[in-house]
Design a protein around this nucleic acid. Structure first.
Lengths: 112, 112
DNA sequence: CAAGGTAAGTTTCGTTTTGGAACTATGGCA
DNA sequence: TGCCATAGTTCCAAAACGAAACTTACCTTG
């Protein structure tokens, strides 16, 4: 089965995961909730590679979770900001955070 | 950056995602919450391939989210059941479900 | 007892996706 | 003119994945 088929699955969890269920995407959204909006910020914060980030941002814009807004015309530069639809993922991030705090104690510090 | 490094990340969301942040894992857990516990059930329900399921189940057991319990000794057969730690992922699944219900309407039915 | 069925994986192989790093484009600034 | 910043894109090798066949171990049915 192809992962992309999940967007029409009968199960609403599966449909949600067709958008945020891959590696990195929820981490980008976490950064958005922390106030970040730019390509280089996401790169620095998450540690993901540049072309994966470019791909994920494109998908998130296509699915209406993020909006790509120009903040400079010359040169062309864009902010990626949460739409209302994206904002409503906050409860999901919060439950994942709470679970991590409770069940995933840190064993050693990391710089990232 | 390696994805596995996230288990020691400063951010609790990232640490949670180091376990459930890949494709398929949350879908397996959804099935667990629906009462499923066996290999063939997960295969039939999710549509994922057998060796990917085997890999995900092993990881989930290693991380203490599922427990592998023998339900037959001859031949050896196992149930995969949620631990307390796994049970506590319910709120996360519910928020993802709610978001899907609200923001991911079904366009056409699928058999899966 | 041989044939077929069930459950739970494992192996193989060809295709995709990913990580890492370098490269490109556009303009600002010294 | 040369260097810096932002936001990507391209290239290649490595890892992950999908599909399907194969394996192991037992059970049932003829």
């Amino acid at each position: 089965m192809k992962w992309s088929d999940l967007s029409d699955n009968w199960c609403p969890v599966a449909r949600t995961l067709s958008i945020v269920g891959d590696r990195w995407t929820l981490l980008i959204l976490r950064d958005c909730f922390l106030g970040m909006s730019r390509f280089e910020q996401f790169i620095e914060s998450s540690g993901m590679t540049r072309h994966i980030l470019a791909d994920r941002l494109k998908r998130l814009v296509e699915s209406g979770v993020l909006e790509r807004k120009a903040y400079s015309t010359t040169p062309k530069r864009y902010d990626y900001v949460l739409t209302d639809k994206g904002q409503e993922l906050a409860p999901a991030l919060l439950t994942l955070r709470d679970w991590g705090k409770k069940h995933m104690p840190v064993r050693r510090a990391t710089s990232a």
